[in-house]
């Protein structure tokens, strides 16, 4: 617990934290202010959709780059090698740093949402769902960033790798799906699209949050049953379980990598 508190204070002191806070506040206030200027407020509007798109685009990049940079820096300054000699389980070390980072980011995002709510009017449920979406993206992105930062040999490699992952999982993902699924028989295309959601946590979270905020026919009649299910308690639990499993797997893989390096060094 002591180590966790030290790590927590270290992440809170970083200048990036203030940049994050400023960025989220500006994004939320600008888009929210735009929505407020308009007369109709439905549950799922283009303002909410823009918020989802911007959060889904920028947050994974920021979080992955920051975590990968942190771990790359540890490696470059040889502190990672030193850490592997400590009488501390590697998973515990990874988990401690990951959870401290997550707690810091959760604090920053929550503060940004709370401050933005002074000038932006949205239903409490919408705020809560957007906040949950942000926390989910941070948790998933930080796990990916941790893994990439641990396997990267230096900061530059870690940053390049996380940027590459962001390009594939966010920017190129629709292009990849369009290219692959267009070749499949028409009858299984929708099922393939649903299956592909579980390969990309960012997309799974986006569709889940859209399902919660919007009507079931948001993605057309073909997905009405699926979106209805996703909006329910079982769907939400399945999404949560999937994201948590991937995060734990990433952290375990990072710990395994560090342990392997420790063995190599001692040999």
């Amino acid at each position: 617990m002591m180590l966790w508190r030290i790590e927590w204070s270290r992440t809170l002191r970083q200048k990036e934290s203030y940049v994050f806070l400023f960025t989220w506040m500006v994004t939320l206030v600008l888009l929210g202010g735009l929505g407020q200027a308009l007369p109709v407020a439905s549950a799922y509007t283009n303002v909410n959709a823009s918020l989802l798109t911007i959060i889904g685009l920028v947050l994974p990049l920021f979080v992955m780059l920051t975590t990968a940079l942190q771990w790359g820096g540890e490696r470059e300054s040889k502190r990672l090698r030193l850490l592997t000699t400590y009488p501390l389980s590697m998973f515990r070390l990874i988990w401690m740093r990951y959870s401290a980072f997550l707690a810091t980011q959760a604090l920053i995002v929550t503060l940004a949402y709370a401050l933005a709510s002074f000038v932006v009017s949205m239903p409490l449920t919408t705020w809560f769902v957007l906040w949950t979406y942000s926390i989910g993206l941070i948790a998933y992105g930080a796990a990916l960033g941790t893994f990439v930062g641990v396997i990267g040999r230096n900061r530059l490699q870690a940053v390049l790798l996380s940027f590459l992952i962001w390009i594939v999982m966010i920017l190129l993902w629709p292009t990849i799906l369009v290219s692959v699924i267009a070749w499949m028989p028409y009858g299984i295309q929708a099922e393939a699209m649903i299956g592909a959601l579980f390969l990309n946590g960012f997309e799974l979270l986006r569709v889940w949050v859209s399902a919660v905020l919007a009507a079931p026919d948001l993605f057309g009649a073909i997905y009405e049953t699926f979106i209805d299910w996703l909006d329910g308690s079982i769907g939400t639990a399945v999404v949560g379980f999937t994201i948590a499993t991937v995060i734990l797997w990433m952290l375990s893989a990072s710990a395994w990598w560090l342990r392997r390096e420790g063995r190599h060094d001692s040999a």
Partner: peptide, 10 residues
């Protein structure tokens, strides 16, 4: 089936 991509940042 690609309607699921509506709103995808990519």
């Amino acid at each position: 089936a690609f309607e699921l991509l509506y709103g995808a940042p990519g």
